[in-house]
Design a protein around this nucleic acid. Sequence first.
DNA 1: GAGAAAAGCTGATTAATATCAGTCCTTGGA
DNA 2: TCCAAGGACTGATATTAATCAGCTTTTCTC
Lengths: 241, 241
Amino acid sequence: MSYLRVMSIAGIFPIDKWNFSTSAILNVLTEKEYDFLISRQIGQKYVKGEVVFREGVVPSGIYLIVKGKVKKYKVDHSGREQIIYVASQGEFIGYHAVLAEERYPDSAATIEDSVLSFIPKEDFLQVLTSSPLFSSRMLKALSHEFTVLANNISVFSQRSAIERLSISLIFLREKYKNDLNAEGEILINISRTDLANLAGLAKENVIRLLKELKEEGILHTDGRKIWISNLEKLIVRSNYR
Amino acid sequence: MSYLRVMSIAGIFPIDKWNFSTSAILNVLTEKEYDFLISRQIGQKYVKGEVVFREGVVPSGIYLIVKGKVKKYKVDHSGREQIIYVASQGEFIGYHAVLAEERYPDSAATIEDSVLSFIPKEDFLQVLTSSPLFSSRMLKALSHEFTVLANNISVFSQRSAIERLSISLIFLREKYKNDLNAEGEILINISRTDLANLAGLAKENVIRLLKELKEEGILHTDGRKIWISNLEKLIVRSNYR
DNA sequence: GAGAAAAGCTGATTAATATCAGTCCTTGGA
DNA sequence: TCCAAGGACTGATATTAATCAGCTTTTCTC
């Protein structure tokens, strides 16, 4: 029912260039691998705002997001956060550090109440070694991440505030597409501060620009909640492709 | 001899966080694999400024930089380039697209006369499939790239012009560390435009900021050539770590 | 080696966005 | 249900870096 109301973004915006693709990896696990990696673990509950791991710490394993959303971010010397990515249900986090044999390159914290399944490093590496398909999908996913991050870099250095905000909103809409209200609309439920840190802007500016977009009939807000009422127009505003 | 004059950066700056690590992959190839992948190919000469591949094109293989330097960049809608990375001797380029089964996510062009060895997609994938060590090193290298690119994103969104320029210069110094003049000094030989596009700044600003750094005794220029005379001070100026 | 083209450089101006200093609203706890 | 705290929001101001317009030097080509 509700899918009739929610416009699909495929074909009108290259959303793939903004999304990682580790969630596709779950599909290539055999039942045995799945049981070994995930079923044995008990999903841990995290409340909104809880830190999952911190940049600079030696990793002990990776996480599967069973439910909820996690921001990946780096903290500036002055204390400001830059959000690198928002991962949602079905995505893995924390594998970079394990695979690179480095410390976590960024921090992760939930942005809503979430359930994460912890997979010990050894288990993850064991499945990786024993399953060429799994390993080749990891390679594929990691290579795709280059596309996403290179995109991000060029957007951050070349695009205006309104363009960056528009792109961030298009990205978030996709991340929140399973979070519908009673009317079947996608509700983006994120603090202005997180939105600012994702778009790389000052919070005050984000608020001002959201107001502009509201006045243009592109979106609506209710408290902190945002929903996009005119996606095509937002895409035009993003001026991306 | 000359290594006595050129200060090592390890220990005073986390240069690893700015460098990809595909050059380490060459070392894990067996002689047989090396012969199959590289020896059979004839190194192709590229003149300065020549485009190696273009964003959006379906990849037919990957390249090993036998000699020279290659910029990886994305072109803006308005025609401005953003340089994502500079690869030098011993590094591979073009593997992201092949592994992700996507089109090239960025373009590559030489920034000095170079020799590249082309490795057809099929050969690369064959060695990848047959050598678990090679495949695990690729995974490691790709995971490390996340560190580098996430770093870049946070620098682009949070750092000032002089900080970005300083970091770019520290990075380039490392890339040019085999390019010494008669006095054993590292010469960075890059156009002001490329430097601006790497640091994400306007060319005029780069020139003004270089002048400042010159006046502070941090670097010297001779035409387009730049050499760092006070690395510690440049690192302080970069304000990074 | 002369001329043209490209790249380096400079100063003035403008535009974009951050910062500052608050007020108002919402929400969760006592 | 009231209060406190945090988050949303607003207007004024400051700051940074881009843009523009031009001159100078270097490099390339014939």
